[in-house]
Design a protein around this nucleic acid. Structure first.
Lengths: 212, 212
DNA sequence: CAGTATTGACAATCTATATTGTCAGATAAC
DNA sequence: GTTATCTGACAATATAGATTGTCAATACTG
């Protein structure tokens, strides 16, 4: 008991730390592999090899492939959203400025990291209900960053029509991103941002109009 | 030779006709099954059972599952696009009227036929490069129906920026449709059309603006 | 009716991968 | 240096479904 209370150290890390490190390596490897061959083409074996770990450690951290996909997605997208939110905050109070700042960051990151880009744009669709739910959640966050939800003075939820506007906006931005990525980043970032912003403006102004 | 020139009739149909009929039954069954369990959840066996045919006939008409998915998709979407084009034509010369007519038809059909809707909205994403290509093609047609491509007086192709506008527009419309379908058609058709149209208007007006 | 083409049911095979299990060697603790 | 823990390689098993093959029953033809 006394000696087993704290796990033996390996490489200066206790059991928990080692586990966490392996988990992270698997997530990184997964992003790499998904980026190469797609989620469906990615085998557990291939991911483990890329992570320089064996299958054993895969099942130590994840119940199955899907769990890893979700973890990888959340890893990438969580980070991205934080950055976007920060960028938006830098735009001050002007909705238009916030929007452009967030979009600029989004498309810049997309261009800097093609493989993660593939994970959260492409690979995440239509895998399973669980994955869809995760994605849906992320898109809501994404939308809220671009165009913060307008609540009426009573603090009520926005209406169904406004939701569809958000959905459409995000759909447009994602589709543009997808195309831009798949065509190897033809246009400069600022051009793409301008085009995406024109769709976001619909959500911005329509939502106002409907609130009168 | 003389007697084998014409195939034996079964049920009043010659070999070719019977083959065509079975093919059609398989496509219909596939749409049904995809609508229930998704493309990935759909086994060859299940589709054959739904079609009241055996696996043999599956491989008679299709090289593999993917081929059937593509056939089913083209079947559904080809028909839809014809109808949309006709509806648009009924809108006369006014781009706005054409747009609304086409969108109204689109969302109306979506509501009338939930299962085919699932096939061409959801099931078609990220299966394989071949399927993606088919989808890409269909979306281009879809886009051209909603907002006919503006060609400059010299008949040149539209620019890359205009392409991204089309992509964004279609992305918005499809996303709205997806949500509307998955939430069981909450809003009336005309409301959804109005929202979708507001995104299409971006492509309409921006394309003009950029052409000056 | 005899003979052949066609069909339907289903078994056999094949492939691919996930998942679990084994074990020898390496590493840290004492 | 001895022992317990941990690690890496890899074998064994399980599953699922596609694809091909067999054969008797059925429907047509002349």
């Amino acid at each position: 008991m006394t000696s087993s209370r704290k796990a033996r150290l390996y490489g200066g890390m206790d059991a928990e730390e080692r586990r966490a490190e392996r988990r992270l390596k698997l997530i990184d490897a997964a992003i790499d592999v998904y980026g190469e061959v797609g989620y469906r083409g990615a085998t557990v074996k291939a991911i483990c090899e890329a992570a320089e770990l064996t299958e054993r450690y895969f099942y130590e951290s994840f119940a199955n492939s899907e769990a890893l996909l979700i973890a990888a997605y959340n890893h990438v997208v969580g980070h991205l959203h934080e950055e976007m939110a920060a960028a938006a905050a830098g735009g001050g109070d002007d909705p238009e400025a916030r929007l452009r700042a967030a979009l600029t960051l989004y498309f810049t990151r997309l261009k800097e990291h093609p493989k993660p880009a593939r994970v959260f744009l492409l690979e995440i669709s239509g895998i399973s209900p669980a994955v869809d739910a995760v994605k849906l959640d992320a898109l809501r966050v994404f939308s809220d960053i671009l165009v913060p939800p307008a609540r009426d003075p009573n603090g009520n939820d926005k209406g169904a029509a406004t939701t569809l506007l958000s959905i459409g906006m995000v759909g447009a931005v994602i589709s543009i991103a997808l195309r831009w990525v798949s065509k190897h980043y033809r246009q400069p970032v600022e051009d793409v941002v301008a085009i995406a912003a024109s769709f976001c403006r619909v959500a911005l102004t329509e939502a106002d109009r409907r609130q009168d």
